[in-house]
Design a protein around this nucleic acid. Structure first.
Lengths: 296, 296
DNA sequence: CTAATAGTGTCTTTAAGACATTATGAA
DNA sequence: TTCATAATGTCTTAAAGACACTATTAG
């Protein structure tokens, strides 16, 4: 009981005679925003090291955007999914496998790459600093970790009867050993009666290739949005950690200080007590915990 | 002060001589899950009409998947973004413009289309039923609204020291005038110590083309996830509505009953009182409200 | 009057925010 | 002993859940 189409072909026959048309197709790349959280040096032996949120960038050796910094990524091969491409790139770039990976957004502005049309299916990866340090330097390319800061600069809301337009400017700053890359991203939300337009625009970008400032800002905002209602933050911690470290992770992602007691009440459920303690801290030792992922 | 690359070319010279390689590229389509919420008939003159969440599907007239139902969508043209393609298709399919549109996910399994490689950049659109009824039938193609139901069937969690595997089965049911399309989607989350894999698989699909059951399930879950902390639900309502209608929208999205008083406390802020009232209701009339979008 | 929804009051339970107190170990 | 962090107690405030009560209309 094969169904035939208007040309009298079965599905099998149709597929055998099918030839793809010769129209223009885009290239598709998988680009990654790889985050980690790392301790900075602390001069005072009593003080805990401060943590910084970092992102991995690669120095471009050729045109376009020569000598600027870009997100790791590469083209999706014919026989792999975008996710497989991202995992492959991640392994090549950092030597790590089996880490948290989440698709972010597909950027498709026709002119985002001056060479030709390249869509970017972007991913966010989270990796703990211990894994990274093991495999650092596997690749000869100059990949470097930059401290990330994304701050809301000002918001302008104009509303009337049928909706509103809100314009928010974000300042992105990436820093490594004194080298600072900056960009400004403007998020415009236009809301009419039944209808919303959300548009990210790069208004300034220094030292970053393509539209990667936008992708990084998007990733930071996604991470910020998810951290309070998921267990995503655990992915930035090594196997054993203290509750203060867990809190530090939240603080660098949300870019604000949190109060200890309620933090532990809320997020303590993400940690499983062990009977080990931190040592040589210059103050009272802290109990070590392991990850306790939320079920769901 | 033009920077030259290793071949001594400036960026401008490089771009002028650049020729894209002749490797295989995927086609990219924009597919849409268009939701609306519509009243069903009610026999009892006293009772309020029940609302149903509906999705727009198009009957396929040719191979592959002939005579099954598919999401509206089409290929992305060389000079447009995926979002512009989605908006164009939306206008062609439903005659409506200027509605809520949100990118969902890019599906890229190499064999998801048996003809050739087609990536699907999927979008979710929300439209109020009044807009739709005006423009219904613009297109000669058989596009129809199906009632949607997505239910979690059972979850199996196996956890050990280093993580867990959770397997959840969802049953998707789409119904129109007695015609029922069904599918089962299995969501497997594999969590190892630092590492998460989320995989959607279609284990059964009757009457739906391609991997569209997966895309629809993804959209319903996204809508469910966002409805409690955004004002997204307002997009499914016409200009004037009652608070009970607002509550009905939440109930059909979340697929559970809500209690009136706390619902109004929480979501009443999304509505602006007018001095009009509903009429001919067979019971006490209700005050009409307009949308009051959240600032942010 | 009746059936059904509209609209609001309030009690209980739970969570969040803010701050204070005590404990502990290395130099 | 001192400093800085660890760990926990508790008071206040705000939100969520549950349910009850009164109001109002068409038929």
């Amino acid at each position: 009981m094969e169904i035939k189409d208007k040309n009298g072909l079965t599905e099998k026959e149709f597929l055998e005679q099918y030839r793809p048309g010769d129209y223009e197709r885009p290239s598709v790349a998988a680009d990654m925003v790889i985050f980690t959280a790392r301790d900075c040096q602390e001069d005072n032996y009593r003080k805990l090291p401060e943590k910084k949120l970092q992102v991995l960038l690669i120095r471009r050796g050729g045109h376009p955007y020569i000598n600027t910094w870009a997100l790791p990524g590469g083209f999706v091969e014919p026989d792999e999914t975008t996710e497989q491409a991202a995992k492959r790139e991640l392994l090549e770039e950092t030597g790590v496998e089996n880490i948290y990976l989440e698709q972010l957004y597909t950027f498709s502005e026709p002119k985002r790459d001056p060479r030709m049309r390249v869509m970017s299916c972007s991913y966010m990866a989270l990796v703990d600093s211990e894994k990274i340090s093991v495999s650092a330097g596997d690749d000869a390319r100059s990949a470097e970790w930059f401290n990330v800061s994304l701050k809301k600069e000002n918001t302008d809301v104009q509303s009337d009867q049928s909706g509103f337009v809100s314009v928010t400017d974000y300042a992105l700053e990436l820093e490594k050993d004194g080298e600072v890359l900056t960009a400004k991203i403007c998020l415009t939300k236009t809301r009419t009666n039944s209808g919303l337009d959300s548009k990210y625009e790069i208004t300034e970008s220094h030292g970053l290739a393509f539209d990667h400032a936008k992708i990084i800002a998007f990733a930071v905002l996604r991470l910020r949005g998810k951290v309070t209602y998921t267990d995503i933050a655990l992915n930035l911690l090594p196997e054993y950690f203290t509750l203060t470290e867990l809190q530090q992770i939240y603080e660098i992602i949300l870019d604000k200080e949190l109060i200890k007691a309620p933090f532990r009440r809320k997020y303590g459920i993400l940690a499983q007590k062990t009977d080990a303690y931190s040592k040589d801290a210059g103050h009272r030792p802290s109990q070590l915990f392991r990850k306790k992922w939320l079920a769901e």
